[in-house]
Structures are given as C-alpha cells and as structure tokens.
Computed example of a mutant assay.
Amino acid sequence: MTFMFFGATEDATDPKTKKFFAIMLVSIGLGIFLGIMALSYHFISFRYYRKTNRMRRMKKVPAYFLVCAILSHIYFLLISTTFLAGGIFGFMDIKNSEAFVFYLITLFIFAYAIGSLIETGILKKRIRQYEKDVFLRDEIDTIGVSES
C-alpha cells in the first residue's frame, strides 16, 4: 500500500492523484487507529490469559475495544486479500524479486489477520466463561449468609 502511495508522487496536481492521496491517507490513518485500539484491547485483556487466575472480580473490558480489535483484524484481512488477489490474478508481477517479497509480507499479514480473528473470538469466550465462574462463586459464597 505504501509502495503505491509513494510511487504516485509524479503528478501531484492531477485531481485523480489528489483523490488517491486522500483515500490512502484515510486508509492508513484508519489502519493505524484500529491497530492501536486492538493493541490496547490486548493489553487490557491480558490478565485473562493466565491459567492460575484467582477467582476475583476484574474490571470489565469495554466493548468498544473488542469491536475495534475485530474491525482492525477485518481491515488487515481485507487489505491483504486485495493485494493477494492482485498477485493471483496477474495484476502484480510476482516474478520480480521486490514484488515477491511484498507478496510474502502480504501473505504474512493475511495469516496474522486470520489468526488474530480466531484468537479474539477465543479470548472473548474465555472472558465470558471467567465472568460466569466468578458470578457463580460469589453466589455460592453468599448462600447461608444472612443479609441484615
């Protein structure tokens, strides 16, 4: 994506070029924003990865972090799919060594996006199960306790 962005600087006065720059800047900005939000989601939810969690209430992970993480992975999946399709259908000459390296990086980004989507789904299930377990333990602990 950045190769195309920096390669189109020959005629910056052309309206099509200006439109292309605007689209690329918005696309890159969106990718950076969603990537930062996904990273924040993983930092916040890191405590749920431990197998030896004490059964205590933890602060809930805000839903917008989860949504941004999923959107980030979908964004990278769509971008990488677009470039992979360009290589598969012959729009990109992957016989060139520079294009082949770019193609391999794009393949890695595609695998990362698929793996991250699966990992985010598994983590969401783990958080939901942990919250159920903590709630159940709290309910069991309050049985027999008289409330005044």
Rank of each mutant, 00 (worst) to 15 (best):
V61M: 06
V61K: 07
A63S: 13
F65W: 15
L66I: 09
L66W: 12
L66R: 15
V67R: 07
V67M: 12
C68G: 01
A69R: 11
A69E: 13
A69S: 15
I70N: 09
I70P: 04
I70E: 10
I70K: 10
I70T: 13
L71V: 11
L71A: 14
S72P: 00
S72I: 01
S72E: 05
H73C: 03
I74F: 10
Y75Q: 08
Y75A: 11
Y75S: 06
Y75L: 03
Y75I: 06
F76C: 10
L77D: 00
L77K: 01
L78N: 08
L78V: 12
L78H: 00
L78M: 15
I79W: 09
I79C: 08
I79K: 08
S80D: 03
S80E: 07
S80Q: 06
S80V: 05
S80Y: 07
T81F: 14
T82N: 12
F83G: 00
F83E: 04
L84H: 02
L84W: 05
G86F: 11
G86Q: 00
G86P: 04
G87W: 01
G87V: 05
I88H: 00
F89E: 01
G90Q: 09
G90P: 08
G90N: 11
G90M: 03
F91C: 03
M92S: 09
M92F: 14
D93W: 01
I94L: 14
I94E: 01
K95I: 00
K95R: 14
K95D: 13
S97K: 14
S97P: 14
E98G: 02
A99Y: 06
A99M: 14
V101M: 11
V101F: 07
V101Y: 11
V101E: 12
F102R: 13
F102A: 15
Y103K: 01
Y103C: 07
Y103A: 11
L104Y: 06
I105N: 08
I105T: 08
T106G: 10
T106W: 07
T106E: 03
F108V: 09
I109M: 06
I109S: 03
F110G: 00
F110I: 02
F110L: 04
F110K: 02
A111E: 02
A111D: 00
A113V: 01
A113Q: 05
I114W: 04
I114A: 02
I114V: 14
G115I: 03
G115S: 10
S116T: 04
S116I: 02
L117C: 04
L117R: 01
L117T: 04
I118H: 07
I118F: 11
I118E: 00
I118C: 04
E119L: 12
E119G: 09
E119P: 00
E119K: 15
T120C: 04
G121E: 10
I122G: 02
I122H: 06
I122D: 08
L123V: 06
L123T: 13
K124N: 09
K124G: 02
K125F: 07
K125H: 05
K125P: 03
K125A: 06
R126P: 06
R126Q: 09
I127L: 08
I127F: 11
I127W: 12
R128P: 00
Q129P: 01
Q129S: 10
Y130A: 07
Y130R: 11
Y130T: 05
E131C: 03
E131N: 15
K132N: 14
V134C: 10
V134D: 03
F135H: 13
F135I: 07
L136R: 11
L136Q: 13
R137K: 15
R137T: 11
